[in-house]
Amino acid sequence: MSGTTEERVRILRGREWAHPVRAARREVLSAVPELDEGCPPLLFVPGFGHGAWAFAEHWLEHAASRGFPAYAVSLRGHGGSEPAPGATLRAYTHDVVQAAAELPRQAVLVGHGAGALVVSHALARYPARAAVLVAPVLGGPATALAALRANPVGTLPALFGGALRLHRRQLFGRELPDADARRHLARLGRADRRAQWQLLAGRPAEPAVGHPPVLVLGSPDDRVVPPAALTRAAGRYGAAPLLFPGMGHDLMLDTRWQEPLDALLDWLVKEPGRR
């Protein structure tokens, strides 16, 4: 990750200055360890349709029990955050950067699904200590094709601005009890159609500020993100993905939620820092 050549940073941001994103009330759920052990705070960013609740189910408490202050933000229009018709990818990115800058210390950004795309854009506007992309949906036509192949009926309307309907088998592994799966599915919302289109257009993110180390993890049996997409995402950051076979797309809600989280935290403990 080191070296003197880096991608070009764009410092003239006329559009962002002239048209700042309008503030929207944000829901941030948290679990903070009783004793501050000096671990960096984690900010979890859920994907399209999900809210901070997805991380409040298991991950926040467990991360806190291992000494990491853990926070999860709901993107505008999701979960308990303010409804926001016409929200764009830039507005979602704004929400994440704002939530990160509010934390007491330099944070680790953890994005799941399309939340990983939001995180990759947020990294260009906030110097995160590290980033973790969990089952990342980084957008572009490949994403649409993969989703169409896995669930044509649920995906097709989304291509035309309708809601994306995800199938239970896409999100969870077989072991998750029916009742839990139904409960989670019932809580799913939807991203704004403009953000969905921007996801499909797949504009690449600007270079990350300060070269944070990036970890990619996912499941080879994920029916939203195919293994090839995982490898490609990890390749962008010069590494191989960590794989957890047998799990669905929603690793944080699946029966074996603890394995990927522990791997993530172990990586953070070992990660020597930037460069």
């Binding site: 410092i11 941001r13 962002e16 200055w17 002239a18 700042p20 994103v21 503030a23 704004h94 950067v97 704002q98 800058a101 509010e102 506007r125 906030y126 110097p127 500020v209």
Partner: peptide, 15 residues
């Protein structure tokens, strides 16, 4: 105004 004043990688609170 705020967008012109803050550091480019650490925004002022949007409230």
């Amino acid at each position: 105004s705020r967008p012109f004043t803050q550091f480019p990688d650490f925004p002022m609170p949007d409230s």
